[in-house]
């Protein structure tokens, strides 16, 4: 880890000011920043500690929706009764992420700034080529071990998977990222790699995430997060799905449905095609399974990760049928 200066921000304003220094990075939970600093990926000159800021850790749930302060801990949000009642997928995505200790450290805002687990990205000493780390240097992952790499949203410059769980649930339910007064829909907050994989989030230097809000919806209330992985716990997703469902009074016809995918794409992936195919349809296994396949339109396998193309639709289908009471 390189040497850096340490400063505690006294206020959000102070944090913004300090964050504008060249080479400054914010320390919220530290679980990404210190990890990547030890790998030599993050090389901050100045660390701005925002963990002591007051008033940014609120968890409020009203009829309009949830308002999560950026410094609310993942564990606290996961265990919040109102979140569990109104946004079960959010709670489930949170408690299935990382470990209990990491969830006590990591914050809602910081979690959105999580970086990929691509082994080539994380090892600059061994692999010089990484467009995400060093624009224009190439992509060492291509032609390497790609079991955990993305099949959706990839570009010629990057195939790294977004590792988030929470973000998948947020994308499904149209959450808003608050950067002070500037508000960005979460789906726009995460950027496709394209030719600039170094830029993962639509956040400018000096901006600070202050909150995340999630509008209330019937689909969010009836939702789940299903995470499939090799290990039962403490692992990133091989494929995951956040799904919300709202049925008509007949209990069979789909009025509203939300589907987002994790573990398979370069950003938290909203599966609009699946939603469109199912809206207005009758909830039954055959229909759901057929519609779930649409999530993989445009998917490109890299070799070792072909299984994700088979797996992800099954995860979606199971999640839909589960919230629908059919699995």
């Amino acid at each position: 880890m390189r040497d850096f200066t340490y400063a505690r921000a006294a206020s959000v304003e102070d944090a913004r000011r300090l964050a504008q220094q060249s080479g400054a990075m914010l320390l919220a939970g530290g679980t990404t920043l210190l990890d990547l600093a030890k790998c030599g990926v993050a090389r901050p000159d100045h660390v701005v500690d925002i963990t002591h800021l007051k008033g940014l850790d609120a968890i409020e749930v009203t009829r309009e929706g949830a308002h999560l302060g950026a410094l609310a801990k993942m564990s606290h949000v996961a265990d919040d009764k109102a979140i569990r009642a109104e946004f079960p997928a959010v709670s489930e995505a949170l408690w299935q992420a990382a470990s209990a200790q990491l969830r006590n450290m990591a914050t809602i805002g910081g979690n959105l700034m999580q970086r990929t687990r691509c082994a080539y990205f994380r090892d600059p000493n061994s692999f010089a080529a990484c467009n995400k780390r060093q624009p224009g240097s190439g992509c060492a992952a291509r032609g390497g071990i790609t079991r955990n790499h993305a099949v959706l949203g990839t570009s010629s410059s990057c195939i790294a998977t977004n590792p988030g769980d929470l973000a998948v649930a947020l994308v499904a339910f149209d959450a808003i990222v608050h950067l002070g007064d500037r508000k960005v829909p979460v789906d726009d907050f995460f950027l496709l790699p394209g030719a600039t994989p170094d830029r993962e989030q639509a956040i400018e230097p000096g901006e600070v995430i202050t909150a995340v809000s999630i509008p209330a919806s019937a689909a969010a209330r009836r939702s789940t997060y299903l995470k499939v992985r090799d290990r039962q716990s403490y692992e990133f997703a091989a494929a995951s799905a956040a799904v919300g469902l709202d049925l008509e009074a007949d209990g069979r016809t789909i009025r509203d449905i939300r589907v987002a995918l994790g573990g398979v794409a370069t950003k938290p992936w909203r599966a609009h095609a699946v939603e469109k195919a199912l809206k207005g349809k009758t909830l039954e296994p055959e229909t759901v399974m057929r519609a779930s396949l649409l999530a993989m339109e445009g998917a490109i396998a890299q070799g070792d990760n072909h299984y994700k193309i088979d797996l992800a639709p099954r995860v979606i289908a199971r999640a839909i049928l589960k919230v629908g009471g059919l699995a």
């Binding site: 530290g30 679980t31 990890d35 790998c39 500690d49 470990s99 006590n104 450290m105």
Partner: peptide, 29 residues
């Protein structure tokens, strides 16, 4: 030393966290 094993678990203000991904300066107070 990279948040992947839990052997360094300590309590900060009564909650379990990983000491390897916590700066000492950060927990002053």
């Amino acid at each position: 030393d990279q948040g992947q094993c839990g052997a360094c678990t300590v309590h900060v203000d009564g909650e379990r966290v990983l000491a390897c991904l916590t700066l000492a300066a950060q927990v002053e107070g």
